[in-house]
Every structure is written in structure tokens, then in C-alpha cells.
Design a protein around this nucleic acid. Sequence first.
DNA 1: CGGTATCCTTCAGGATACTG
DNA 2: CAGTATCCTGAAGGATACCG
Lengths: 105, 105
Amino acid sequence: MCPATFAFDVIGKKWNLPILSVLTNNKSVRYNELKRLLPGITGTMLTNCLKELTEHGIVHREQYFEIPPRVEYSLTKSGEELAPIIESIVVWGRNNIEMLQDKMK
Amino acid sequence: MCPATFAFDVIGKKWNLPILSVLTNNKSVRYNELKRLLPGITGTMLTNCLKELTEHGIVHREQYFEIPPRVEYSLTKSGEELAPIIESIVVWGRNNIEMLQDKMK
DNA sequence: CGGTATCCTTCAGGATACTG
DNA sequence: CAGTATCCTGAAGGATACCG
């Protein structure tokens, strides 16, 4: 598969950027915490996305066998390399939305 | 709307990154040329995406009233600011896909 | 050439209930 | 707590035909 296609698929999934954004701003996040920080996401979607991101080596899943169970999600090395990109996307969004609003006036 | 949400929506649409990627590598592209450079896209989708990107001030549409008609699409100032981001996404994809393939071995 | 209009299909994503 | 399993809906996306 073409690297660009691979990257565009990862970046271009509805919930992936929001999830990665949360993980960029928090060292390690639990499942339900992640869900709380992502208003509108359903459990099914969160699970699917995390699974895919984990398989792609972008997110790390650490399971602690305690009662009650605890699972922590964090960025892998690959995921951390994505962090500055996500940051610049947010910055771009901030600049661009201002331009749009100026036009509306 | 939150700037991050706005940016994630733009970036997170299936065909937007591929389209912007083509426009990043070509100063100005015609409709059918764009379609040819994006294998798999349908006319409907290309039209919808271009319309939305134009409304968001990311893509510029220049119409020449000739016979036969000619329409050129290019990046606006906002769109050009996105170019380095797209480039770094592609670079990230190239590095990451290698890591994935190494794991498969 | 560069679309639009129309109708159709598929699957991403959602709701709910249940489990180790 | 952190999921699975199941079923379901709607909207993203596709195919086709036609138009300025």
C-alpha cells in the first residue's frame, strides 16, 4: 500500500484525530476517561478505533489485571511523532476559522 | 464551533486529504484531471468535496467561459498553509508503514 | 467540459443489553 | 471497569442519465 494512502486513511477517520488529540494532551488515559473526553463517541466506536490504532502501532494498550479492571491507553513512538502534526492542524484550524468568520461579517 | 473540531472535520473527510494533496503538488488542476488523479472517486463526490472546500475558503475555483468550458482549481492562502502539514503526514506515513512491515517479518 | 439530478447501496457509526 | 454481541439506522458515497 502507498504510504500516503495509509496515512490518509489513519488521519482521515472520523474519530481518530479527536482520539489522538486527547492522547497527545494526556500521557495515559483510561477507557471511560477517553469516552468522557470525547463527547458524542459511542463505546463501540471507541473500541473499534482504539483497536485499529493499536494494530497500526500508533497507540499502546496497557492492561492491569486488577479488580476493578484497568486499561491505560497511550501513544507509541509512532503516535508521538504524530503529535506535532495534530498540533499544527489545530493551529491551522484556529487561523482559518477566523478568516471564515471575518468573511461572514 | 471549536477550531479543533472544524479542522478535524475538514481533515477527517475521506477525500479531502487526497484532493488537497493533488492540489499541493500541482499549481492548478482542472476538474477531469483531478478526477483522473484520484482513482476511485466519483464525479458526485469530487463535486461535493470541491464545493465544500471552496466554501471553507481552502480551495479556489476559477471558471473560464470558453468553448469547451474550463474550470481550474487551486489552493487559496489557507490551503497553502495546509501544504506543509499534508507533506508531513505523508512523511509520517512513509516512516510508520515501514515499522509496520518490519513487525510483520 | 464540467458539472447536476436522481435514485440506489453499503457500511460507518449508534443503541441497547449483556459479560469477564 | 472495560469491554462484546447484536441489531439497526442514516448518511456517505456510488451509478446512471442528462444538461448548459
